[in-house]
Design a protein around this nucleic acid. Structure first.
Lengths: 350, 350
DNA sequence: GTTAGCACTCATTGAGAGCGAGTGCTAAAT
DNA sequence: ATTTAGCACTCGCTCTCAATGAGTGCTAAC
């Protein structure tokens, strides 16, 4: 009789099996599972009483919970964690799933933004959960070309094109002192010297390396500092693409208004969302319940998968649903979808 | 005893007064209002029985409804319409309201987009309803400058700067045949000839006026047509800014999940939203219930106010809430907020 | 024209009974 | 030493029923 190590004790094969069956059933039917239900499965040869004993043990070990004294069991957070880590069948990709991800390929998705948006929409459609794509941080991209286009004597638009074809722009106030010829020189210097530098590094690079050059070519250098700060000081902005924000409403565990409200509010106020779906690890990661370290997410699981460009992790595609998620289906789906995104992205840059 | 014309009949002063009091009360307490409640007001000198007679008449005239045979009255859609058109006290601006709209001025709002976003957020915060700002259609702005920046031998980014400082950009595929010098010529011609033309009109203008010029200066003119279409064919995109999307959940009439769901879904799928909050009229307009001509909005009112630039209507700021809205407060608020937005916008372009 | 009085309606609330799915425990069977 | 049958018990859910109370419409009197 083989056994697995987990925490303090061991689990017998039978316990493992019962735990798996119970969680599968609960995920499917969203109702506490009793001993009779489990014993009815044709591949189970034990009586309800035996199952009950095992269930009591599994509850003592912290894998299961009861909703009230005489109810069936539901998985605890620890139970889900164990299920995801040790009980998930090998991640075979269902054919039906790959069919759907191919949608992504056939749709005419010309630009990266559209790809992210499409991906989020498709993912939430398939799963009926809420999906979030964290787009690449444009400021990590490298400068290809910049330009300043005057609007009036005082105002101008600064435009930055990155190597990925992304365009950042901002309105700036021109210093009174500056002359058109100086502006032109400035832009030329920046383009010559700073091509290939990440947008976010532009400002510090200038401070370090280019002050001498500027002094030589540009009049009124002291005013220039303020201007350059205005031009190159970025506020971090990563773009989030959502799909199925209201899908939470169809999850039976959130039937109650007071329970969905914090969730939906959380989805709307995106400043915390970024942290939630950021992932430093490659591949698919699963965070269950309180592992997400946010009150509103305590009954949710977040699954992240990262996509890459030229082998570098640049963003994530995530799924948010109740802790009782269809992990089996969803993990493999996210895996293949993130790979598909990676492929498509690298096609763009050909 | 004076009277007002409305539909087929007349309403006595007393009826007008009772109707107003009832709607005020219902808006405040969200519960059917009975004759006793009305008669208790100190400025009412009649007994409940008299009120009942009047209420019965007002119901016959279609201004009021009952939820069941022995309930108090609630306003009908027609009732609200009459209330908004004839019973609203003169739109005096509450001091508390102006205080809040000044927030807009003090916040450092540098760009138009930020202004719209801020406005939507502030509006929904004050009112606890859902707000939507329909941004100006960038394609109606005039071309200030355009540029094509190559990314690779095949791909390039086209950038269009408008007179308002807005930047539109798109990735394009370069025709095989085109030479860098030709591309430069093309851009020069476009900038010389098309400055001041609305983006949306660029393509047709070229077809009409510039084909001869191109033939003279640019080789391989036949391929150029496809390329220009790709470059200048816009898909309409107007930007929507939301505030308080989940505020609907705190409205007592939408306590029920099945009732909010369609609403929230509607708010998410924005393609119909644009039509809902578009308004050709200047000033503040109110659409009540089914006047909005969308199933999901049948129990909602939409209040639109347009903001302008150089006297031209360019967008709207709107509020979506239950038909039982605090019209009094909200209409004057929207009026002043839209004016404030107009001021701020015109400050930008100085 | 106004109002007091009264019968009537209907949504809401709470108590109590019955049901059923589930448990834990004990003692017998394997 | 396991496994299982049997049984008492718990708890949530649903149904019914009666009481309550806010409201109405109508009629007859003021």
């Amino acid at each position: 009789m083989s056994a697995n190590k987990w925490g303090d004790g061991m689990l017998t094969e039978r316990q493992l099996y019962i735990l798996r069956v119970l969680i599968d059933d609960y995920i499917k039917h969203v109702e506490p599972v009793g001993s009779r239900t489990i014993s009815k499965r044709e591949d189970i040869t034990y009586s309800p009483a035996t199952i009950r004993n095992e269930l009591a043990d599994l509850e003592d070990l912290g894998f299961l919970e009861k909703t009230h004294t005489s109810s069936g069991r539901i998985p605890s957070e620890k139970g889900y964690r164990f299920y995801v880590d040790h009980l998930l069948p090998s991640l075979s990709v269902q054919p039906s799933v790959t069919d759907r991800t191919e949608l992504l390929s056939t749709e005419k998705v010309q630009e990266a933004e559209a790809l992210f948006d499409q991906s989020a929409k498709i993912l939430s459609d398939i799963t009926n959960y809420t999906s979030v794509v964290l787009g690449p941080n444009a400021l990590d991209m490298k400068l290809r070309h910049m330009q300043i286009i005057p609007l009036s004597s005082q105002m101008a638009v600064a435009i930055f094109v990155t190597n990925t074809g992304h365009v950042e722009n901002r309105q700036i106030v021109l210093p009174n002192s500056i002359e058109p010829s100086d502006l032109e020189k400035l832009v030329n210097i920046l383009n010559e010297r700073l091509a290939g530098v990440r947008l976010v590094d532009l400002n510090s690079r200038i401070q370090k390396e280019l002050s001498s050059v500027f002094k030589k070519h540009v009049r009124d250098y002291q005013n220039m500092g303020v201007f350059l700060d205005q031009l190159l000081l970025w506020s971090k902005k990563e773009k989030l693409f959502y799909g199925g924000k209201t899908n939470m409403l169809s999850q039976p565990e959130f039937r109650d208004l007071d329970k969905v409200r914090p969730l939906l509010d959380f989805l709307e106020t995106s400043d915390l969302m970024e942290k939630l779906v950021s992932s430093t690890e490659k591949g698919v990661t699963v965070k269950i319940g309180t592992e997400n370290e946010h009150e509103a997410m305590k009954n949710c699981s977040v699954i992240n998968a990262s996509y890459t460009m030229h082998g570098k992790h640049i963003g994530t595609i995530s799924l948010i649903g109740p802790t009782r998620m269809e992990y089996k289906k969803v993990i493999s789906l996210l895996d293949s979808l993130s790979k598909e995104m990676t492929n498509r992205l690298n096609d763009f840059s050909k």
